[in-house]
Amino acid sequence: MARKLIFNIFRYNPQDPHSVPHTDTFDLEETESMTLFIALTQLREEKDSSLQFDFCCRAGICGACAMMINGRPGLACHTLIKNLPDEITLMPLPIFKLIGDLSVDTGTWFRAMHEKVESWVHTSKSFDPQAEEERMDNALAEEIYELERCIECGCCVAGCGTANMRQDFVGAVAMNRIARFIMDPRDQRTEKEYFEVIGTDEGIFGCMGLLGCEDVCPKHLPLQDQLGILRRKMGWSAVKQLFRRS
């Protein structure tokens, strides 16, 4: 017999002067292969058509649907209901500005992060449409792709102890992005330039090493390794700069 599920869902519509933050409870019967995408869509279409949440690709690729699922950040679209208890509590991601109910503004946060870490290839060369492409070793291309797989869902930020305490912390997602460019020979930035971006308490030295980021990453990116590598690199860079100053 199908389980009867109980959903406790955070509700607040900042655009409605009569709305106050509260929790609504809904019942729903479990169906085969049900995901949180299917369940939430059903709740909206059958029980409360004002319920706000975000889905886009519904295939674990776009990163739109991160939320707190029984206290843990995760992608709702690939969360199978059969892996959850009968009672499911859904909250919006912390840190990001609330739009309404389970929907948060990740767009503004990530654009600011991209600007801050200058998330693009820095080069003094200009593109020659007639020329053959520069060569790259395939193994290196695959290593870069490994870090490029980040979908910027925000789970690592929501699961980060430092980010929850200080708003200006860039998070593992930004560190991963920097690590990706450091690895890429097309980016001509020097170690010193990278240090200026993340060699601070807002960056790599703010990380407390709790590694919640890696635990909750839905793409299983090697965030712990990248943090370690960056910390060593930036540590050396800091030491070198100290000596240079004296």
């Binding site: 492409e133 060569r135 790259m136």
Partner: peptide, 16 residues
């Protein structure tokens, strides 16, 4: 040309 331009901008295309 478009593929090469994207390589120039940073795509880690798989290589031969």
């Amino acid at each position: 040309e478009a593929v090469r331009e994207m390589a120039f901008w940073g795509i880690p295309w798989n290589r031969v």
